[in-house]
C-alpha cells in the first residue's frame, strides 16, 4: 500500500514537472535561441527585466480579452478603448490628481464596455462587427478629445508604469483575473459556454447575459492596462484609420497561445504566451529585421505554435492506425 502511494506521488511529481517544463519551455527555448544569436543583448539581466515589464502591459490587455475570447467573442475595439480611457484619465488628473486619473479611467472604460456589450446584445450581430463600429467611434472621439488638453502626465502618474508600481499592479491584476476565471460562478459559466453553448444553455446558463458580462468584467483590466500604458509612456495619443487595432493584436495572440497552452491554467498561459510573443518581436528588432517582416515572423510563429499544438498528436504519432483514427 505504502509503495503504491509512493508510486502515485512520484507519478504526480513527474507529471507536474513535465507540465511546468512544457509551459516555461516555449519562452525559454525562444529566449535561449536568441541568446545564442545575440548573447551581448539577451544574456543580460536588464534585457530580461525590460521584456518582462513590457509583457505585463500586454498581458493585462490579454487578461481583459480572455473572458470574451473564451466564449468566442472577438472585440477589436479594445485598443481604442484603452486610448480613450487613458485620455479621460489624463484629463481628470489635471483637476483631481491621481484619484481623478484612476476614477476617470475606470468610469470611462466601464461606459465604453457597456456601450459595446450593449450594442452586441441589442443588435445581436457578430462581435467583430460591433467591435469595429465601436473602434471607429472611440478612435474618432479620442482624436477630437485629445486636442482639448495637454496629454503629458506628471511624475505621480508615472508610478503606474514604472518599477515597482507596474509589478505590483501586474501581480494584483494576475491574482484578480486568476480568481475571477477559476474561482467564481462567472468563470465557471464562461468555461461551460465556451465548451458548448447549446448544452450549457440547457443547463440553465444564460449565454447572452454572460457574454455581455465578459465586456464589463474585461473592462476592469482594460482600465488597468490604460493606467500602465499612460504611466509607462508618460502620455497617450489618439490614432485614426483603425491603427488602435495594433494594440489588441499582440495581446490577442498571447491569449490564443494561452488558451491553447493546455499544460497550465489559461491565465498563466496568457502571460507565458505574451512573454513569448514579446521575446520574438524584440528579438527580431535586435537582429535588425525590418519592421514589416517582423509581423510576418510573428504571424508564422503563431501559426506554427497553434498548428503544432492542434495537430501534434497526429503529426508525431508513430502508430499509423492511431494517426488515421485521429484524422
Amino acid at each position: 500500500m505504502k509503495t503504491e502511494v509512493a508510486y502515485m506521488k512520484m507519478n504526480n511529481f513527474v507529471n507536474m514537472s513535465k507540465r511546468v517544463l512544457f509551459t516555461i519551455g516555449l519562452p525559454l527555448i525562444i529566449y535561449l535561441a536568441l541568446g545564442i544569436l545575440r548573447p551581448d543583448i539577451y544574456f543580460k539581466w536588464s534585457t530580461f527585466v525590460m521584456l518582462f515589464t513590457q509583457s505585463i502591459s500586454y498581458a493585462v490587455v490579454g487578461w481583459s480579452m480572455v473572458f470574451g475570447m473564451s466564449v468566442g467573442l472577438f472585440d477589436f475595439s479594445v485598443g481604442s478603448r484603452v486610448i480613450l480611457a487613458g485620455l479621460v484619465g489624463i484629463h481628470m488628473a489635471l483637476y483631481f490628481g491621481v484619484v481623478g486619473f484612476i476614477l476617470g479611467i475606470i468610469v470611462s472604460s466601464l461606459v465604453m464596455a457597456a456601450f459595446t456589450g450593449g450594442a452586441y446584445a441589442f443588435f445581436k450581430i457578430p462581435s467583430i462587427i460591433t467591435g469595429f463600429a465601436a473602434l471607429l467611434i472611440f478612435e474618432s472621439m479620442a482624436t477630437i478629445y485629445q486636442k482639448q488638453f495637454s496629454v503629458i502626465v506628471d511624475d505621480n502618474i508615472k508610478v503606474f508604469g514604472t518599477s515597482p508600481g507596474i509589478y505590483m499592479i501586474g501581480l494584483l491584476s494576475f491574482i484578480s483575473v486568476y480568481l475571477i476565471f477559476n474561482n467564481t460562478k462567472f468563470g465557471y459559466q464562461i468555461k461551460a459556454i465556451g465548451g458548448n453553448e447549446n448544452i450549457a444553455r440547457s443547463m440553465g446558463i444564460n449565454g447572452m447575459k454572460l457574454k455581455v458580462m465578459t465586456y464589463i468584467v474585461g473592462c476592469a483590466f482594460l482600465a488597468i492596462a490604460a493606467m500602465i500604458k499612460v504611466g509607462y509612456t508618460g502620455t497617450m495619443l489618439g490614432v485614426t484609420s483603425m491603427q488602435s487595432m495594433n494594440q489588441c493584436f499582440t495581446p490577442m495572440m498571447g491569449v490564443m497561445i494561452g488558451l491553447y497552452l493546455t499544460s497550465c491554467n489559461p491565465i498563466i498561459g496568457v502571460f507565458i504566451g505574451q512573454f513569448a510573443i514579446t521575446v520574438v518581436s524584440s528579438g527580431l528588432v535586435a537582429l535588425g529585421i525590418e519592421s514589416r517582416l517582423q509581423n510576418v515572423v510573428v504571424g508564422v510563429f503563431l501559426l506554427l505554435f497553434i498548428g503544432l499544438k492542434t495537430n501534434g498528436e497526429k503529426l508525431f504519432s508513430k502508430d499509423k492506425m492511431h494517426k488515421k483514427a485521429i484524422e
Partner: peptide, 18 residues
C-alpha cells in the same frame, strides 16, 4: 451528448447551480 467536454465533471454536475 449532454455534457460540456472542456470543463470538469464537477463543473458539469453543478453547471447553472454554482
Amino acid at each position: 451528448q449532454g455534457t460540456v467536454e472542456t470543463i470538469s465533471v464537477a463543473a458539469n454536475i453543478f453547471a447553472g447551480r454554482e
